[in-house]
Amino acid sequence: MDYYVLQRPLPSFPEHETIRIIYNIPPGIQGPEHPHPGQPYTARRFPRSCFLPDNDIGKRILKLLIVAWERRLIFTVGTSATTGETNTVIWNEIHHKTEFGSNRTGHGYPDPHYFDNVMAELAAHGVVEEAVPTAGSKTVKSGVEEVGL
Rank of each mutant, 00 (worst) to 15 (best):
Q30C: 03
R60Y: 06
A68I: 07
G101Y: 06
E99H: 05
M1H: 08
V147A: 04
T76V: 05
P40W: 05
K138C: 11
P110R: 07
P32M: 11
N24Y: 09
H36A: 11
F46C: 06
V132M: 09
E146Y: 04
P35G: 01
V128H: 10
R72M: 08
F115N: 14
T88P: 03
P112M: 06
G101M: 07
F100H: 06
D2E: 14
V118Q: 04
R72A: 11
R60E: 15
N92E: 04
V140S: 09
E121L: 09
V140R: 10
E33M: 05
Q7R: 14
I22M: 14
G84F: 01
A81T: 10
P53V: 00
E17H: 12
P110G: 01
A68P: 04
H34R: 07
E33N: 12
R45Q: 12
G126Y: 10
A68G: 03
S142T: 11
I22L: 13
F115P: 00
H36D: 09
T105I: 03
G136A: 03
Q39M: 11
K59I: 09
S142G: 10
G101D: 13
R44S: 12
S80T: 05
H125I: 00
P32A: 14
I25G: 00
V5A: 09
H36S: 10
R48S: 05
G143T: 07
N117F: 10
F46T: 06
V147C: 02
K138D: 07
T105Q: 07
I19M: 04
K141M: 11
R20Y: 03
Y23P: 00
Q7I: 09
T139D: 10
M1A: 10
N117W: 06
P26N: 12
R104T: 12
D54T: 05
V132G: 06
R8M: 14
W69D: 15
S80A: 11
R72C: 08
D2Q: 13
V128F: 00
V5L: 12
Q39Y: 13
G108R: 09
V144D: 14
L73G: 08
F75D: 03
G106V: 08
H16Q: 13
V5I: 15
V67L: 09
R48D: 02
A120K: 14
V132F: 10
C50E: 02
S49I: 04
G108H: 09
Q30N: 06
Q39K: 15
D111W: 07
